[in-house]
Amino acid sequence: MISIDNKLYIRDIDTYIDPFFPVERAIITHGHADHAKAGHKHVLCTPETSEIMKIRYGENCARSFQTIKYGHSVKIGRISVTLYPAAHILGSAQVLLETPKHRIVITGDYKTILDRHLDPFEVVPCDLLITEATFGLPIFKFNEPEMEIERLLDNISKHRENTFLIGAYSLGKAQRIIWLLREAGFSDDIFVHGSMDKLCDFYQSKGIRLGTLRKATLDNKKDFKGKIIVAPPSALKDRWSRRFENITRCYASGWMQVKQRAKQSQIEIPLVISDHSDWNELTNTIKQTGAQKVWITHGREDALKYWCEKNGVQAEPLSLQHRDEANEL
């Protein structure tokens, strides 16, 4: 048996998974701030995640990085660690901890629907599945993102006098939205907030084509009519956004499934596009891994726990703090 505790600490090998505080040894599932912190001594992750961490936190954000590609393993003591694609953002990984008799999978954040700019999600059979549940309620059933993009483009063509400000998290979501827009044939320059241009460059360097991007600076106000600006969600409410005229606020997130939520955030065009699994993806994944035990790290754990127990799977919520709905990434 591999022993792992409710803080995702693996005693055998003195290693944490996505710890919130600096530790000796950490395995990092992906580069989002609530999973990847600076200051660990030794970090194990995918090559992409290590590059992202260095872009965000500096070259010296950990003393050493050991990177392994998807599908590759390293042996630490008696435990073999393998990383598999989680299709959440570039470099995101599920972690398989394995001994000859015991398999634990930590999904990190993940989605299973095909997202052609990322490696596809793989189901990894296991005994204990440690899953997220950000959208763990049956109301969350996401449409094809292409439909959402089409709705946005339709709106833009009808309101050429407006500026379309899309709230999308700087890492992952922003690039996915831009990529989807390009796939849909949108060839205009797209303007991006200063906090995301390096990350966009990084995506482009990995062969993900985002087209011509320009910084959203105020050189020429008229420039923004009928244009798309992508900015982190926090900037939507910030003074930063006041510089633009006739703004239509859009927000790309799974939360936008609930109209009342969109209304609360004064979003006029909600784009229900999520990098997390919806209810069906979560429950299907649990079934497909064949896990007899499920731990739920964060999200709407009540419903998923209930579903597991109804389907003969033991389940326990970990309620990892710092990962509540306020910072959906």
Partner: peptide, 9 residues
């Protein structure tokens, strides 16, 4: 599951 969903929405 309906109750939990309704409570949330």
């Amino acid at each position: 599951l309906f109750d939990l969903s309704y409570d949330y929405v």
